[in-house]
Nucleic acid binder design. Structure first.
Lengths: 146, 146
DNA sequence: CGCCTTTGGTTTCATCTGCAACCGGTTGAA
DNA sequence: TTCAACCGGTTGCAGATGAAACCAAAGGCG
């Protein structure tokens, strides 16, 4: 009772993972070497640029990282002076995180590069394919969630 | 001179990574707990089911894993008796890997479950969206390679 | 109030990953 | 032949990752 073999190269989860890893690596090239940021640190900074004052727990949701990763990325960024942490007066457990001046400068360098790399990677795709990709990712994410 | 903030939740590389991670996790549920396989081990088995007798180096390409990962996955699978390794007479450095009987049995259990999970995850997507997704992943992979 | 539970965040530990060094076999040029 | 360069595969080590234990502050209920 044999099973028809699986063609891994056509198996969508594999293809998705492959594309995602390659794309992530290209994006990482825009910040790793030059700015010494890890992917998780980059994500934290990216979100703080959009939402200053977020707490670690809130970052967890926005970045899709677990709280350990956020905690470590944040403390590394604080040590490097790229973000600051202010304990909230209304709740001493929470701390509002935000970019420092130095962090803002790095942000202003790093974000445009990421955008540009994204555009380069996507430029071969016609608009409709892109729309469909977007839709497919939304549906897949929803279907695969919890 | 501020930069318009990046909306991470609309940034395609992030969305891609998110979808990929969630999907991979769901697929992993079909083999991790029940069969004690890691993702890399599963990939190695999946490819050997399709191409018996491959060498580790060849597996490297098919699985998109680096040679260290393949080496370790293979030795774990050999220890568990799921694959066998036969040194090739024409070159004593290489070894042809293939599923054992026990490995075939696991393969026959594991592959249909992965297929079913894939189908479940994709069932909300209309055919054209799926085609576009497929095309987009191919183009993205190519654009991001090397 | 005082106590128990919950919550935000950190630390610990065990595992995974990936690069680089390494080992033995093979190849090819002198 | 012989020896150096190369190749397939393994191992060692350092950094990344995640689950679970942990700590301190806050909330809720008697």
């Amino acid at each position: 009772m044999t099973v028809p073999p699986l063609k891994l190269e056509e198996f969508l989860p594999f293809r998705l993972s492959l594309a995602s890893n390659l794309v992530s690596r290209r994006i990482a090239e825009t910040y790793e070497a030059e700015f010494g940021l890890s992917t998780t640190q980059w994500r934290v900074m990216a979100v703080l640029g959009e939402y200053p004052g977020m707490t670690a727990t809130e970052l967890t949701q926005k970045t899709a990282l677990d709280k350990v990763a956020v905690s470590r990325a944040a403390s590394a960024l604080v040590n490097r002076g790229l973000i600051q942490k202010r304990t909230r007066p209304d709740d001493n457990r929470r701390a509002a995180l935000s970019l420092t001046e130095a962090g803002e400068r790095v942000y202003a360098e790093v974000i445009p590069r990421a955008r540009k790399m994204e555009a380069d990677l996507l430029k071969a795709l016609p608009r409709e394919t892109l729309d469909a990709l977007d839709k497919a990712l939304s549906e897949l994410t929803e279907a695969a969630e919890a």
